[in-house]
Amino acid sequence: MTTIVVFVESAGSTPRRASLEALGAASQSGASVVAVVTGPNGPAVAKALGAFGAAQVVVLTGADQYSPDATAKDCAAIVCELKASAFLVAASSTGKDLLPRVAALLDCTPHCDCTALRWSGSASGTRPILAGKAIATVSGGGGVFCASLRPNCFAAVEKAAAGTVTTRAASSARLAVVVDVSAKPGTKLDVKEAPIVVSGGRGLRAPESFSLVEDLAAAFGTAAVGASRAVVDAGWRPHSEQVGQTGKTVAPQLYIAVGISGAIQHLAGMRTSKVIVAINKDAAAPIFKVADYGIVGDAFEVLPALTAAVKAAKG
């Protein structure tokens, strides 16, 4: 049986959903799955992973501060020792940063931000290119199939496995180290991870009216706020919320675009969402071409009504 190594990220002692999806993709292949975790909460995170298909969990110890280059060396060494056939990460900030380094250490070519994988015969993946305007099928890339997986595109699989935990001293040679993480205020979800995204554009007219967008996101409970580039460039919203070609690429279960025209560069960042809803007062706005459901109307009238209805529906 072949082995697939998956690097698993965590928030505190909870594994991140996108990493569980990567574990799910690995176990779907039928391979034996080995998870790698690091950081001060490593042992606690490791305990949870057996339930998600990890036959073995390697905890990197002594690395309380994250170093991308040292972690890459450790992952590459584990891949080599286990003669693994593939190395997977979530296409998160950390995962996207780690994958190419591990690939280079293995002298392989990474397949970044895959939205689907196929394991029959030789492994292959599909990945959107040109900002989602085309979908490429890619394969090969050297001895180890290295891929990052776009969040929300793969299913986490609850599958009991041995979950045997071993430890390994993290590499001590470090060229770069994360010395501080200033957490987002509150428990705000990131647009890339959230299962629901409510995005606002210039149609909201002023930064203050984003409170209407925030209210709707809050009514859903598990939603993040996104924004078009126009409002980010205007300084109404932080860059971290920008969705599109020069912002974040998101693929949530539900994407709601409010007062966004649907420029090609915006669509690039959200067109793989499962369900798209558009609210725009212009019936001819291009966003309606990609929306599953549309409401033609004034955001200032529709948003409060929708927020109230979602609250009522959630009971």
Binding site: S124, A134, I135, T137, S139, R271, I276, G294, V296, V302
Partner: peptide, 25 residues
Amino acid sequence: QANFDKLELPPPRKEGRILGEGAAA
């Protein structure tokens, strides 16, 4: 090293629906 096996246009999203106008929708 990597193979580019295929390039396709993304599948068109299935035709959506305008549900109506304003808060009534």
